[in-house]
Nucleic acid binder design. Structure first.
Length: 344
DNA sequence: TTCCTTCGATAGGTTACGTCA
DNA sequence: CGTGACGTAACCTATCGAAGG
């Protein structure tokens, strides 16, 4: 059953309906579809680039829609923006954009003091390209062929960041078995966030470039994106649930209102049975198919004539309106059971 | 100190794709 | 040429556990 509802707000699709195609109204008690901004993914697949996973491309399209700001879906789930848009992090550039490529600073530029110990030697990265870093358990190294471009130029490093770096540097001395939990610096997190806004998934090239630029292992970048996606999805689900809850409350309210109205109409009918036998011609719109239905009901009484005008016209008009409303309610009930039959 | 939240990391499962018999 | 088994890569999901408030 498909039920179109307009509750005054801009209709907002539920992304989880899109994400859980197996869900049925049987499963949830009721199921509302308020339009979907998503179209089939198959017709919008972009061309697959070299070295890019097909699923990645397809998902990328889907998730871009999920995260996009195109109306009518606007669920901003990226409230965290440590780097204001108005103040883009200088030196933070997306490595997969050709014009953004930062020349890799060499170790001899003299700016490599206090580097993050997550820094990974180029040799190791090259090895990790072959083996995704699983063989390399220690991210610490004293060898560096590059460094984070912004890490040293950004003068806004907090005390905590410096502490973190010091902590990590001290990890070098520790036994690898008791590895401290690694914490990304603000700059790293901010850059990853910005990257995530551009692409919620990474192809291998992007991953490597990002890892290289941030002095992280590709595996770390990968994990960060995985966690980020998972947590975004979680937040989206929470938002969807909240919205559903509100819809449910509104519907319950509306239902109560209609029930009350129905009761009043029934009371009216019993108190003034004569007028209820008037043939009623009402124009109602089917809530499902939005077709206008013209209905004339005759109760079989021949006493309903224009001659019975003892009462005021106001009363008649009010009664006609009331009957029309009653009919609408009945039609709506019928339609919930059998759409497209009541109006035809 | 304890509790709760955040977040990096891991394990296991799923899916899509390529290769080969 | 079509098909099933197998391996691989990337991802998702649940969960753990360290760190911090």
């Amino acid at each position: 059953m498909e039920l179109a509802l307009s509750l005054g707000d801009t209709p907002k699709p539920f992304t989880f309906l899109d994400k859980t195609p197996k869900m049925s109204s049987k499963d949830v008690g009721f199921c509302m579809g308020l339009g979907s901004a998503f179209s089939g993914r198959s017709d919008e697949k972009r061309e697959i680039r070299e070295g890019e996973d097909r699923r990645e491309v397809i998902r990328d399209e889907g998730e871009r829609r999920l995260l996009s700001s195109d109306p009518p879906v606007q669920l901003d789930l990226l409230p965290f923006s440590p780097v204001p848009r108005s103040q883009p992090p200088t030196q933070l550039r997306f490595p997969w954009l050709a014009d953004n490529l930062v020349p890799e600073p060499g170790p001899s530029d003299g700016t490599g003091k206090g580097l993050d110990v997550n820094r990974f030697p180029a040799v190791a990265i090259a090895a990790e390209e072959a083996d995704d870093g699983t063989a390399l358990s220690s991210p610490n190294s004293t060898v560096s062929s590059f460094q984070m471009d912004f890490c040293v130029r950004n003068g806004g490093r907090t005390k905590r960041d410096l502490e973190l770096e010091t902590e990590r540097a001290s990890d070098d001395d520790e036994n690898g078995s008791t590895r401290k939990k690694l914490r990304l610096t603000k700059e790293q997190s901010a850059f990853l966030e910005e990257s995530f806004k551009e692409h919620s998934t990474l192809n291998p090239k992007q991953k490597l470039a990002l890892a290289k630029q941030l002095n992280l292992r590709p595996r770390q970048v990968e994990v960060w994106f995985q966690n980020r996606r998972a947590r975004t999805k979680l937040k989206q689900t929470e938002v969807d649930c909240e919205y559903l809850k509100r819809c449910c409350e509104t519907l319950t309210q509306e239902n109560r209102k209609l029930q009350k109205e129905l009761q009043e109409l029934r009371a009216l009918k019993t108190s003034q049975p004569f007028y209820m036998q008037l043939p009623a011609t009402t124009l109602t719109m089917c809530p499902s198919c939005e077709r206008v239905a013209t209905t004339t009901t005759t109760t079989g009484s021949s006493g309903a004539t224009a001659g019975n005008n003892n009462n005021s016209t106001t009363n008649k008009a009010a009664l006609s309106l009331a009957k029309g409303r009653l009919y609408q309610v009945q039609q709506a009930h019928m339609h919930q059971a059998q759409p497209h039959q009541a109006a035809s």
